[in-house]
Amino acid sequence: MIGDRIPLFCDTALAERIERAEAQLIARGSEAARRRDPDGFVLPIAGGVASFAEENSPFNKVAGLGFGGVPTTAELDEIERAFGARGAAVQVELAHLVDPEIGELLSQRGYRLASFENVLGLSLQSGREPSAGPGIEIRLSGDDEFQAWLDVVVDGFAHPDAQGLPSHEDFPREIIGNAVRDLTTAAGVRRYIALRAGEAAGGASIRMADGIAQLTGAATAPAHRRRGVQTALLSARLADASAAGCDVAVVTTQPASKSQQNAQRQGFDLLYTRAILIKQP
């Protein structure tokens, strides 16, 4: 127990719920992307999905793998052929709570460890109220200001805090915009904007499904950092998730990053780690 709070414990059942929500998110975003690139695909595999949306997309990955058993050789062959035909590497995000046989199998097939990411969670109770510091306003962001929202988010991502392990991924601005639009229209992602002194200071998003509130990204413009913008964006999203009946909020961060530190300060607990395994075409 930490103070009067019991840390959230993650068993395999909770991890499966979270990974299933992640796989659904990726699948729906990828399916929406087919409006631009009909050459994309979404294939089921061992409880997860293999997805290719378009070149350089953050949806090009295998997500949620392993909570439906160990993938067969035939399934992996099919997926590797599908990615290879598009000149893309296969990236697998593998939770450490799945059967270790999967990691051994992928290593034997030539997958190499590229990075890690942490999944943190917070148990939600009803009645949460949003809070924001002086001069900060948080509200839902509509389509009429999508470009302003995107500008501040991309600007924030382009200037990450130099703490923790760096991300192995870097996406073009146009692709980020495509992905966010796809998630908003096809996966029910809500966008929030933070205003400070009348300026767009930060942006964030959330998806709520099956009781899981996925915090799908947040960024603060460099000129507005260390002013409570991130905390206010988080507070607003958690209050909305609580009101919608979600029982768990989750966020993915780079290990030892400022984002992880901020999340843990807000009561999030480290639930599990995903290994990022990549096989070149």
Rank of each mutant, 00 (worst) to 15 (best):
N178A: 14
G203W: 03
G84S: 15
G245D: 13
G40R: 11
V250M: 10
N178P: 01
L238C: 02
P281C: 06
H96M: 05
N118G: 04
L97G: 01
N60P: 04
E31I: 04
V189S: 08
L215M: 15
G228W: 10
D143R: 14
W149M: 03
Q147V: 06
E80H: 05
G103F: 00
A53H: 13
P222W: 04
G202N: 02
Q280H: 12
Q24I: 08
R28H: 12
I79G: 00
I45K: 08
P166T: 12
L113W: 03
S242I: 11
T185N: 03
A21R: 14
D39P: 00
D182K: 05
R265S: 10
G68K: 10
D144V: 03
Q91V: 14
Q91L: 06
I79W: 01
A197I: 00
L124E: 10
T216A: 15
N118C: 04
A218M: 13
D143N: 10
E22K: 01
D269H: 13
A15F: 05
A95F: 07
D143A: 14
R34A: 08
G40E: 12
G142I: 06
H224S: 09
P130A: 07
S126V: 02
G66K: 05
D210G: 11
L150N: 05
Q261I: 09
S51V: 05
C246L: 09
P255K: 11
F146R: 13
G156T: 03
G66D: 07
A194K: 07
I212N: 04
Y192G: 01
P7F: 07
A158Q: 09
L97F: 03
A132R: 07
R128C: 01
A162Y: 06
R237A: 09
R225D: 03
V180Y: 12
G87E: 12
Q260M: 14
Q266G: 01
G164N: 10
L105N: 08
M1P: 05
L233H: 06
A158P: 03
I45G: 00
S242P: 11
L270N: 09
A241M: 07
P71F: 00
S141T: 10
A200N: 04
R265E: 06
A200I: 04
S107L: 05
D4T: 09
Q147L: 10
Q163L: 15
D4I: 13
P166S: 08
